[in-house]
Design a protein around this nucleic acid. Structure first.
Length: 577
RNA sequence: CGGGAUGUGGCUCAGCCUGGUAGAGCACAUGCUUCGGGAGCAUGGGGUCGGAGGUUCGAAUCCUCUCAUCCCGACCA
């Protein structure tokens, strides 16, 4: 491809609308342009990168035994009513009415459609397992689209769905997909972790998110420094607390703490560390109050709490001051477990705590040297809190790090949630009717490009991993008016193209500086330059974008040198086995 | 939906407070000079100042409404 003919509108300045680096660079590099909030057009370079990711996805899906299909984007409401997601999915589901007054929606995901397809076409265990996928534009009417391709309303997604006859089969399929996903992101050249995750609105029994590690990620994840344990904050388990020897229990006393409501204020006033205080929070679970006991310096993890209480996270929220007073008769800030009339749950850490401070359930008073079991009954105890870096890995006991990640893939074992609600069944070997056991598997294809840039860039622009770069080589003709240099550039271009190498020839009548800047901006891995040193010594220069090193080679050895650099770099992104 | 901010040529922005009929840099076109890290000079084209209404002799500027975009929060693969 010739730069002079390519629609590649690069920008010198950062567009005002972009905040994060991937968004800025995608705009500046001429990869995308915004049509409206959260909706982007892909220009040739952007599309080329997308196609690279898609190709890797297709190869690995095929390798894992999945078949490609293409499902409708417009879907009828009645299907969604059958699965009950018409009411549960919320305003993210873009609904509309067609000319016949039929309610419809734009597909944000395709469990309903695929399940409907399979229930109508597959009836026997002999045809299972089945694993289908598609790569398609999805629409989710996000409350707040942001960060360019990171969270669009319209985005390109690979979604896959599996149907198994047995639970073991479904688990095997899940494992295969887990492996395929690892291979895909490895081949894309991304540093990632598979983390245990909550299943959210999709539902199902277990799931993993594939997170690209990058400081600008929207999610915080916990990563063990010693083993491969990694988890979403919503799911990250706290290690079973080590038992401590019970010290002498002191007599409980009441102290006046006028106006001291916050943990910090109480601790400063009593001159104790927050670890010696138990705070009492009130949540409304399905509009009923529940008290939650937690060490002073810890934080509630709402999803864990919701799961412990057996309620949907949508129906769990912190009580406001009035609700607290109505439920307990005590103003917030002075609550404690002693004498509370509402249900109580305690974080496991409480089992290690003795002689701690709690609210006295009386305005302006706290109790010192309270003890669980002695002064109040031992409530339900569970893991309710947010993991911290002070915790240890629940799997191996190693040190934990909190880091940010961008979710680029998510796999779920769905079980029979959709096959049951949509009555999708097959006959097993005994002739008995069984619901399909399903799994679903998503990859944010367009988001993957954004994540790759978040993870790989410098002050000059993007640094694409070779396998997903829109071109492998950018060839700079540094003096288009010089006949010899131009002839050499054209010759190299033709030869490399003939060898199947993807080359962008910068044949524009521009000064060298502009060409360098653009080449760096768009992050093409190999930059080949034909210019001064060709005239003086018959040499071309090859600069590798990932390490900034320049290799000067004789013109005659140029093609071989480029091929060998590509081959060597390609090896870095090989998936194992 | 709550909080904050911004809409002025293709892009980045100044002008607004204190009303007087729109400006810079980049980009674009032409010419000359330049030519290894986003060139210089000259000339030129391009703007309903987001939209509607109001105040005023006069509105980019003041007032009201409205639309759009961005950021934080809630929410979410």
């Amino acid at each position: 491809m010739r730069f002079s003919q390519l629609l590649l509108p690069t920008l010198k300045e950062d567009p005002a609308e972009a905040e994060v680096i991937s968004h800025k660079l995608l705009l500046r590099g001429g990869f995308i342009r915004k049509l409206t909030s959260g909706v982007y057009s892909y220009l040739p370079l952007g599309l080329a990168a997308i196609r690279k990711v898609e190709r890797i996805v297709r190869e690995e899906m095929q390798r894992a035994g999945a078949q490609e299909v293409l499902l409708p984007m417009v879907q009828p409401a009645d299907l969604w009513q059958e699965s009950e997601r018409w009411t549960k999915y919320g305003p993210e589901l873009l609904r509309f009415t067609d000319r016949h007054q039929r309610e419809s929606c734009l597909g944000p995901t395709h469990e309903e459609v695929i399940t409907d397809l399979i229930r109508k076409t597959v009836h026997s265990y002999r045809n299972l397992p089945l694993n289908l996928y598609q790569i398609q534009t999805k629409f989710r009417d996000e409350i707040r689209p942001r960060f360019g391709l990171m969270r669009g309303r319209e985005f390109i997604m690979k979604d896959g769905y599996s149907f198994d006859a047995t639970n073991e089969g479904a688990n095997t399929t899940y494992q295969k997909m887990h492996e395929a996903y690892s291979r895909i992101f490895t081949r894309c050249g991304l540093a990632f972790r598979a983390v245990e995750a909550d299943t959210g609105t999709i539902g199902g029994s277990f799931s993993h998110e594939f997170m690209v590690l990058a400081a600008t990620g929207e999610d915080t994840i916990v990563v063990c420094q010693h083993c491969d344990y990694a988890a979403n904050m919503e799911k990250a388990r706290c290690q079973e607390p080590e038992p401590v020897a019970t010290p002498a229990l002191e007599a409980m006393t009441k102290v006046e703490t006028v106006g001291k409501k916050k943990v910090q204020a109480v601790c400063e006033f009593l001159q104790i560390p927050a670890e010696d205080l138990v705070k009492t929070l009130v949540y409304m679970a399905e509009d009923k109050p529940v008290a939650v006991l937690l060490r002073g310096d810890h934080e509630v993890q709402p999803v864990k709490l919701a799961n412990t209480l057996g309620v949907n996270t949508d129906h769990l929220r912190l009580a406001d001051d009035k609700e607290i007073f109505d439920a307990t008769g005590v103003p917030s800030g002075y609550l404690g477990p002693i004498g509370l009339k509402i249900p109580v749950v305690a974080d496991r850490e409480l089992t290690r705590m003795h002689n701690f401070v709690v609210g006295a359930n009386e305005k302006n008073f706290h109790l010192v040297n309270a003890n669980m079991g002695r002064d109040f009954p031992v409530p339900q105890v569970a893991d309710l809190r947010m993991v911290t870096e002070a915790d240890h890995c629940p799997a191996c006991g190693g040190a934990l790090t909190l880091t940010r990640g961008i979710e680029v893939g998510h796999i779920f074992k769905l079980g029979t949630k959709y096959s049951e609600s949509l009555k999708a069944t097959f006959l097993d070997a005994q002739g008995a009717e069984q619901p399909f056991i399903m799994g679903c598997y998503g990859i944010g294809v367009s988001r993957t490009i954004a994540a790759a840039i978040e993870q790989n860039h410098d002050k000059d622009g993007m640094i694409f991993p070779l396998p997903i770069a829109p071109f492998q080589v950018i060839l700079l003709n540094l003096s288009p008016k010089d006949a010899e240099i131009t002839a050499a550039s054209e010759g190299l271009y033709n030869e490399l193209t003939r060898l199947g190498i993807e080359v962008l020839l910068d044949d524009r009548d521009e000064r060298p500086g502009s060409k360098f800047k653009d080449a760096d901006l768009i992050g093409i891995p190999l930059r080949v330059m034909v210019g001064k040193s060709f005239s003086s010594e018959g040499a071309i220069e090859i600069r590798t974008r990932w390490d900034g090193e320049t290799h000067k080679v004789p013109h005659t050895e140029g093609v071989a040198a480029i091929r060998s650099l590509i081959a060597k770099e390609t090896q870095r992104f090989q998936a194992s086995n």
